[in-house]
Structure formats: C-alpha cells, structure tokens
Design a protein around this nucleic acid. Structure first.
Lengths: 242, 242
DNA sequence: CACAAGGTTTGATCCAGATCAAGATTCATG
DNA sequence: CATGAATCTTGATCTGGATCAAACCTTGTG
C-alpha cells in the first residue's frame, strides 16, 4: 500500500531549548539545565516523507517520536484487514506510547505529509527521568493525557451521532491548531474523507455528506481539504455545548 | 443516582508479597526487597460497597487504586447527561491512571459489587519508582497497556458490528477471568445489559437480543447474569479469528 | 500538458440497530 | 414473603447511516 519506510537521518544538532515547540512537547515545564539534559538524549532528527511509515505494528519498540513538523495518522489493522485509524498527531505531540506495553509497536504510524521528527530512545528517557522528577512527572502526564484522549474518542464513537462526531473532530483540530499559534478557523485537512471516517466510525460518503450539510448550514466552508470554520459556536451547539 | 461514597478504612497490614494477585498487579516482576518497598507505600486498604463511588470526575487526583477483589466500572458523563462506560475493572487491575494528566479524576468509578481496594499514593509511587527501575518500567508498561486496550475498544466501536462487539466482550472477560485462575467458561456478569450496551456502543435491547441469539445458536448459555461459554471457537470465528 | 489514479460528491436504495411498547423476571426491602 | 422497583426479553416499527452506483474533481507523473 504505502511506500517502503526509508527514513533519512538529518542529524542536525537538535536543540530543544531553541525549539518553538518546547512549551508543547516533552520539555514542558523543565528548567534550562533540565532541558539541556533532555537534548542530550535525542538520538537523531529524521525526516519522514509523505506516505512513509515511521513504524509498524509488530516492530521492536525502542523509541518515542516527537513531531517537529508535519502530520501523522496511527492505525491498527484487524485480522481480516479492517483498518481503524486510532489517532492523528501533529507537531509537539508524542507518538509510540502504545509500544511500551509489550516492547513492540502495536499500531502503524504513517506520515500524511513530509514530516520532521525527533527520536527519543525510551530507555534513555526512563534513565533520565529517574534523575529529573519534573521530567518524570511530565512524562506520566503525557501518557495519562493519551488515555484521557482515548476516553473522549470512546465517548464519541459510543454515543454520538454522525454530525456530532464530525463537529467534535473539527473543533478538536481547531483547538490544536490554535494552541500551536495557527489560525483556529482556517486549516488544511491532511487526511482523506476515508481516514476521517475510519477515525470517527463513519463511511467516507457520510463524512462527505455532512461536510456538505455543514457548508449549506453556514457552519463551515469546505473546499476539498481546505476548511474554514464560519460558526464555531454553531458547531459547539450541535454537540450540546453552549 | 448512586449512594454517597462512604469509604471504610480497613487498615489491615497490606502485604503485597502475600497477595495472590502479585503476578498481575503492580508488584509484577519485582524482587522480594522491591516488593517490600512497594508495600511500604500503600496508604490503606479500603472496602467499597456495591454502588459506592471510589472517585468521581473532577475530584483531586492523589492515588491510584489496585483492586484486590470485586468489580468496577468507569464512565464519563457528557454535558447533556449522556453516559459512556469507558471500562470494567477487576482484581489485579489498576484504576485512576486518567487522573494523572490534570491532577483531577476525569471519569467516575463505581463498584458493581462489594470490593476491596489498595490505595497507592501517586507521589509516593513516583518517588519510589525513581529508585526502582524495574518498578518504573513496569508502571510505564501498565499505562501503555491501558492505551493499547483503549485502541482495541476504538477498533471495536469504530468498525465492528453488534454481534462482533458482544463476542469480543465475552471473550475478553473470559480471558481475564482465566488469567486470575477462574473458569474461562463460566462466570457472572456484574454489570447490567445497559452498562454492557454503553460500553459497546449499543442499546440494551440490542445486547439482550444478541444474547438470545447466541443462546439459540449454542454459543453461550445465558441465564440472566450467569454466562456459560459453550463454543468459544464459534465466538472467535464470529469476529474473524480462527 | 495530458491522462491515469486516487479522492470526492451526490443520488437511490437498503438494512442493522434504534426506538417504542408491553410483559415477564429478578431483586431489594419492610 | 409480599410488594414495588429494577432489569430483562421480545415484538413491531422506524430511521440514520451503510451500501451501491455514477459522475466529477484533483493531483501527481511521464
């Protein structure tokens, strides 16, 4: 399906302290010297081309990956080939946490556009976090946040109807773009309707229809992958907020 | 809805090393002296009566809870009152991991039968795990396992049909009972059809109907909450395994 | 720059599971 | 052990979203 994972090593000196994402990524809340210690263990900075896999289910787990730029999806494949998208990840977010449990990745991660990532060897991170309680605690918070996020998806899949799901999805993206200093109202989707559908437990036709409906209702402008939120309050009302 | 949480302290000397669950619970893989150190930080052993809440969303997070005996459900409530069951927990399993992310619990936990639990103050656990790498690593594995479990539920909710969901649910329970030394084929459900439905993204009537169908098909005997798996292979086939 | 190939939209139809309804069974409590 | 409240089962009907189908865009490639 997707091209072979040929990851290129960039090996620039990675400097967390100079990274614009330091307030979102692993270094959050760390002191200057602590951030420097963290920098020391970043194995390498890589690029990952659109369509390439960063890792695949079953491969030995060794590192976490912090996204510097770009956009990923993760997904699991069931025995019979069914595919379920389990998440979309953007800059400042950490991927690979699922691999810790069994020393093997349990899902696939593929770049939806050209990406830059920082590889963090997990054994080194554990080692360092024994010396830096604030890193340790922050890392635990990150894992916990992933669990909370998953509960949100379970709520969405288990008890929302199609329109609510898509509205929730758009508002979530909006909020994450905003947190990264981008416009909360205008963004490009990196994923296809099918991938959105898989994530939301809907078929691609349904996703498309609801986009059209939202457009007609003046909630969003949709031009293929270009999204403009015109009435975020209206979207929130749709899911019972506001 | 449920009664007030009046938790009674038992304050028996809790001895992990003498606990039959030590191979499933936090002490897994720890040496004798390490387990003793872990014992030292268990704050108290409590009972929790059926219907009582162990914690509620919004309350300050301070401790994790290891289940010694009994059965819990966790759930989240959406603004408009919608309730989504996010998990069922049984002995040897750890609850409360979601609370780490924001220092507050993000879901509710209620006992589905009288339970005994061990309270583990989280700050103490972090402290100790700085000194015991194997405890640290094991704890990370537990958090990661929770994430993997959630991905499984997302797959279930996002791409399985009703019968597959219920079959998956029964096989999962069966496997967990077996891991605890109980019969994998014969067990009592502690939760109502409605709670099962919420967890599986189905209505209680649908759950009931599918139980009846499974019964007719000779896959399981269902007598209210008493379940007997008669053809586990058949159930597995239903979800495309085997 | 043309033209596959992949992705999207829209319409028509269908069906799995929701909803509504009515009993039957089980369980808690005085 | 009687009584009411939950819980569960089963039937009838409805409907949101799936499925099938066809045309229409976009985009990447030689």
């Amino acid at each position: 399906m997707a091209s072979q994972a040929v990851l290129k090593t960039v090996n620039l000196k990675t400097v967390c302290s100079a990274c614009t994402l330091r307030e979102l990524c692993l270094p959050i809340g760390l002191s200057k010297t602590e951030v420097e210690a963290l920098e020391g263990l970043i194995y390498q900075r890589r690029t990952c081309r659109r369509g390439e896999h960063l890792y695949r289910a079953g491969l030995r787990f060794q590192s976490l990956y912090a996204i510097r730029s770009g956009f990923f999806k993760t997904y699991v494949i069931y025995e019979d080939g069914r595919e379920q998208v389990t998440g979309f990840y953007m800059m400042g977010e950490i991927m690979g946490l699922d691999g810790i449990s069994s020393d093997a990745h349990t899902c696939h991660a593929v770049a939806l556009e050209d990406c830059e990532i920082c590889e963090v060897p997990f054994d080194k991170l554990e080692e360092l976090s024994r010396d830096l309680p604030s890193l340790q605690h922050h890392f635990h918070k990150m894992m916990s946040r992933e669990i909370v996020r998953d509960h949100g998806v379970m709520l969405l899949l288990g008890s929302m109807k199609a329109e609510e799901r898509l509205a929730t999805f758009l508002l979530n993206l909006s909020q994450r773009f905003q947190a990264r200093g981008y416009s909360p109202d205008t963004f490009h989707l990196r994923m296809t309707r099918e991938e959105i559908g898989s994530y939301l437990g809907l078929k691609l036709e349904t996703v498309s229809r609801i986009f059209s409906k939202f457009h007609e209702d003046g909630l969003v402008n949709v031009q293929n992958k270009f999204i403009e939120l015109r009435n975020a309050a209206g979207l929130k009302r749709l899911i019972g907020e506001g």
